[in-house]
Design a binder for these strands. Sequence first.
RNA 1: GGGGUCGUAGUUAAGUUGGUUAUAACGCCGGCCUGUCACGCCGGAGGGCGUGGGUUCAAGUCCCAUCGGCCCCGCCA
Length: 590
Amino acid sequence: MANFLATDKRTHYCGNLNISHAGKEIILMGWSHRRRDHGGVIFVDLRDREGMVQIVFNPDSGEAVHGEAHKIRNEFVLAVKGTVLKRPQGMENPALKTGEIEVIVSELEIMNESKTPPFSFDEEDISENVRLKYRYLDLRRPALQQNLFLRSKLAAATRNYFDKNGFIEVETPFLTKSTPEGARDYLVPSRIYKGMFYALPQSPQIFKQLLMVSGFDRYYQIVKCFRDEDLRADRQPEFTQIDVEMSFITEEDIIKIMEGLMAQIFKVCLDRELKLPFPRLTYHDAVNRYGKDNPDTRFDIELVDITSIVSNSGFKLFQEVVAAGGIVKAIKLEQASGLSRKDLDELKDYVAVYGAKGLAWARINATDWTSPIYKFLRPEEVEKINKAMGAKESDIIFFVADVPRVVNDSLGNLRLHLAKKLNLFKPDDLAFNWITEFPLMEYSDSEKRYVSMHHPFTSPVLEDVALFNSQPGKVRARAYDLVLNGSEIGGGSIRIHRKDLQAQVFKVLGLSNEEARSKFGFLLDALEYGAPPHGGIAFGLDRLTMIMTHAESIRDVIAFPKTQKAACLLSDAPSKVSIEQLMELSLKIV
RNA sequence: GGGGUCGUAGUUAAGUUGGUUAUAACGCCGGCCUGUCACGCCGGAGGGCGUGGGUUCAAGUCCCAUCGGCCCCGCCA
């Protein structure tokens, strides 16, 4: 039998062949995707990362090759030498990219056999536990391969952009120090220092600031980060950030350069032009108008505050909620006659998840409403609400009355839910928004103190520093998030570079000097040695890839992801370790 | 920590109010077939229903517990 690698190199990828190769002798290597053995002529769809091509074994082109071809089964690894030919008249397959041509095989080597795969790569709905256990086979699916190719392109475009703009990529340690604020750390026991632990970084935050102190001026890194928190469709315990930090800049510089990055990424990866600059929303406006600080603005349903209209409502419940300091807000769905009474009632369950105790609705008619609460409302209230909502016949209004957090959460998520259900946006729509003027800190009920919203090194807006003691919750941060299609894809801030201001912030956060020293001492020291004004941002590379590939799960853009319980079904991690390993680390399982 | 949902041949699913040897399609194996492309035709093998208890004359079907996949709340500076 032929022994290809000893003498021949692959000349083409299967999927790249076309009519222009007709007549050429070529060498292909790939997997037999499917075989159609007619006893005489045998067809095999040969697949590689670029696609598939039909290869043909004719009995008259040699008994040895034809005999060997009979042994081919699905997923065998084949090398073939053959000639590209235009397919006979009427034999073209328009469903196949290479369907105009085929390869008549003259030499065949079965480089490896394969067990029958546990699932078909053509089938879409294979249960995820099977897919994840055989991830290396799952990754043979063209769709998943395309996602990873795009991810690679995205990373390359990013490196290219930063390199051209004078940034330096610096690696920062994975074995580092646990910092108590923020997410739960993944810990790594130290063998040399018994009872002590490294932590895997939640982000390279402090190190990139130190690099600014060192004078690198423009830093970036595509880097893994680790957070030991529960998983979601868009959250994995290890994920990848595009991490950036710059010196001698303001918010405007960062925003401008990052808009350039996004434009470059979308141009290179998807050949799409972005409209710059991106719109901006303050945190306050985002929450008021969309109920969330990561608003999806691909469709224009907005929350309307009708508290003042119903503060004295004939509907007792509204009145009581307002009297207790709550608010009443509403959203309007235009021309929503498609929703049945049953649909409307079921939406109550949807908002209940966010703490809403009810969901009132009103169907707008020419002269009145069809609504469970209509009979309670005074005519002038109805009129005012209609006006405030800009309601027209056949529209539906939804109301939630509760504390602001519940109202915004419920309606903010309901508008998303309805938009998806009613297809109010197109799959390719892109809506970027910068969210600015975040609060520097918010009061934590569980900790009974103010905590940083971003992180404790975020600079306050200087004119708000006067509010530190009187109204800490009103202090704005010099922080910004980038939101794309309702997904937070990045966030950052201008940092504090002066020790006195940093000390003030720690004080408001209730951190004593000693605590601050033990937690972030090395950063505080560094700030005393000529730290330049600096700031930065970090993007979630996985989430960005998800949006660009239309992936529904973050697992579809990660080669070897974890399950929702943070396990790897492929490698069976996490797993027990030997008693010897534990002893070496002075660890005992309790 | 909590809520929801799913778990039946290799895969995807069906399985009535509990009732003989648990269905189908695809895949797999064997045979036939020189133009198919989800090739076709003929034949065959393969599971005891995630796991462990329980109720019952009788359990994929009912009950309890438990494990696992997915979605969500909390959590994620």
